[in-house]
Amino acid sequence: MVDPMNHPIVSVRDLAVEFRQHTGTVRALEAVSLDLHPGRVLGIVGESGCGKSVTARAMLRILDRNGSIVAGKVTLDPGTSHEQDLTALAPEGSEIRSVRGGRIGLIFQEPMAALSMQYTVGNQLMEAIRVHRDPGKEKARERAIALLNEVGIPRPETRVDAYPFQLSGGLRQRVGIALALAAEPDVLIADEPTTALDVTTQAQILALLRRLQRDKQIALMLITHDMGVIAQMADDVAVMYLGRVIEFAPVRELFRAPRHPYTKALLRSVPDLDAKPRQRLATIGGAVPQPGARPSGCPFHPRCPDAMPGRCDTKAPAPVAPGAAGAACFLVEDAAA
């Protein structure tokens, strides 16, 4: 469990995000509360449309233009004299830009999203280094090479002058990580950092992320759809479904004793390497509803085997309280009462 003396470095409270679409307004996030702690990995897991990427984008204020934060706070360094509410900053202002890529580094699913084709790897790293703390050109280049070395790129002194398209997918993602680390951030947000990679490369990148996070005591927010990645990487896990955090728990607790019916079902539907031949997988009925067709009450009730008619379909259970293990489910509320 989280050490109470260990204050969060980022705290998200009751975050709600809406997207304007031609059919009307779609609520993509609802009452999301999370804490990121130094030296810990918060895993965010969920299927498509659950809002895991939207959460990260809202925190960094890089939502698409039709999206807006309608409620909640994202506080950097909460409880300190220099705490800062990121939702209050101008979306294109200098303050948020110094947080993005400064205090908070970002790793994308597709490293090409962060890298430019027109500049060498070194140029882009040096720019990121010098924007935040300019040590001069010579020193910045040395630091760029050191960063490439740190993320496990062989022959960094020559690769520093390579263009991103000359590198393989795995090396590009390593450069993406180096770029995120350039300003020595306290917080890293990694949005599906290995989804586009081969499995053996994924294993390498995950090992790298874990090593860097431990060595630098970074607060890592790891977004993924893969329960295996969560099991291997996370300290704490937030499970999201249709824009809500429906369960939060330390990783071992979550895998040993999941509380929410959705978490249970999700864990059961993961393919098993020890399965019997032709063994069927456990399934969740139906599919994730389209964002515009959010069910009333608990968003999971139409697919839930334990849904209680008249209750789950009329009223949403209370959101998960930040920092404590729990689930947004009437069954859990009843068991606690």
Binding site: V199, Q202, L206, V229, A231, R252, L267
Partner: peptide
């Protein structure tokens, strides 16, 4: 063996069990 080891296991207690293979495809 490498492919098997690379599948992230859904078991938080089975971390770091296997070393990821070196290099790339």
């Amino acid at each position: 063996r490498a492919l098997l080891a690379a599948v992230p296991k859904s078991d938080p207690d089975a971390r770091d069990a296997a070393e990821a293979p070196r290099g790339e495809v």
